[in-house]
Design a protein around this nucleic acid. Structure first.
Lengths: 181, 181
DNA sequence: GTCTATACTAGGATAGAC
DNA sequence: GTCTATCCTAGTATAGAC
């Protein structure tokens, strides 16, 4: 069983249950691999699994969210493309956010650097599109932050009230959140 | 030891570590009470503790966030007052959000109704201020949702990047998020 | 109402056979 | 590379003394 098949499964577990909510037994059930096999692939156990999932996600962020912002096209088109891919990644708000589950409690210190770096590269890519569109660096950065805040907040609120409409609305409004109405 | 002294301590634990991250031993250490004493006060264990914390928070939400929106004053003043109290409650973004830790994994089903009701009453109170200020019901509701999304999202992002500035900015912008610039 | 002691279960991790 | 069996620790929960 290869990394490419197991990491997506681990991602789903960590985003759904959080670091503390994922047990080796649960992973064993979900993947069909015995505990000993899991430790064969990940000698440092759960911590290594979460770390590799975060690196896998960082790669996905760069490939799916950041790269579309760097190709040719108008700022609005780039953001619309990104918004669509974000919507897919979170399955219209049905799938939770990795950040939440990996920044609670003790896990926070373990993974802070990885999470921080991943968010930062996404943030900078969005801000760069804003600068291209004529915004000042400061405003572009703030609005990029607002976009990530809206995405993460919408995931929390949508799940809490059991209604995906707020998430979908946020996705739709991403371009205007950076470029203005 | 009374409910009034122990519930705030439990709140801090659950918001910091999430439901799965809080163990009875941890609660015992934090409160200074032995395990058996904790079960004396909360016969149904951790689940009851979390439930009572949520009811305690619901009360606090109504007392501190909703009530200030119902007194006399201009819409802008009401929102500014609320924003200030929200900032205090989350300690400028240093303290996490209960919702996150209690909507992950299995805990989600256990507490969904309580969390949902609590958010809904807050949401409606904000929307009502918007209607008073002349907004349509639909727009007022959407903007109220946007405010909660921004608050929760800012907590996630601020913690993740280790910088409270986005949270403070969101707090400052709450009135204009409802009433327009 | 709080404590010590204890029972039981689940989670983390490894040894060794195949 | 995967399995069964096992070990140890941590977590949940309760009994019974004070």
């Amino acid at each position: 069983m290869s990394r490419q098949t197991i990491l997506p499964e681990l991602l789903e577990l960590f985003r759904k249950f959080g670091y503390d909510g994922v047990s080796i037994s649960r992973i064993s059930e979900a993947t069909g691999l015995g505990k000993a096999s899991l430790y064969h692939h990940f000698p440092q156990g759960k911590e290594q699994m979460a770390r590799e999932v975060l690196m896998f996600v960082d790669q996905a962020v760069n490939e799916y969210f950041v790269a579309p912002l760097k190709v040719a096209g108008s700022p609005k088109q780039k953001l619309t493309n990104m918004a669509k891919l974000v919507e897919e990644f979170y399955d219209c708000g049905n799938k939770g956010c990795l950040i939440e589950g990996l920044t609670l409690g003790d896990a926070d210190e373990l993974f802070h650097d990885l999470i921080c770096a991943s968010i930062e590269s996404w943030l900078q890519a969005i801000a760069k599109v804003g600068v291209e569109a004529g915004l000042s660096k400061k405003i572009a950065r703030e609005r990029a932050e607002n976009i990530l805040i809206a995405i993460q907040g919408a995931l929390v609120v949508s799940r809490a009230i059991g209604n995906r409409a707020p998430f979908k609305r946020v996705i739709r409004d991403i371009p205007s959140m950076l470029l203005g109405t």
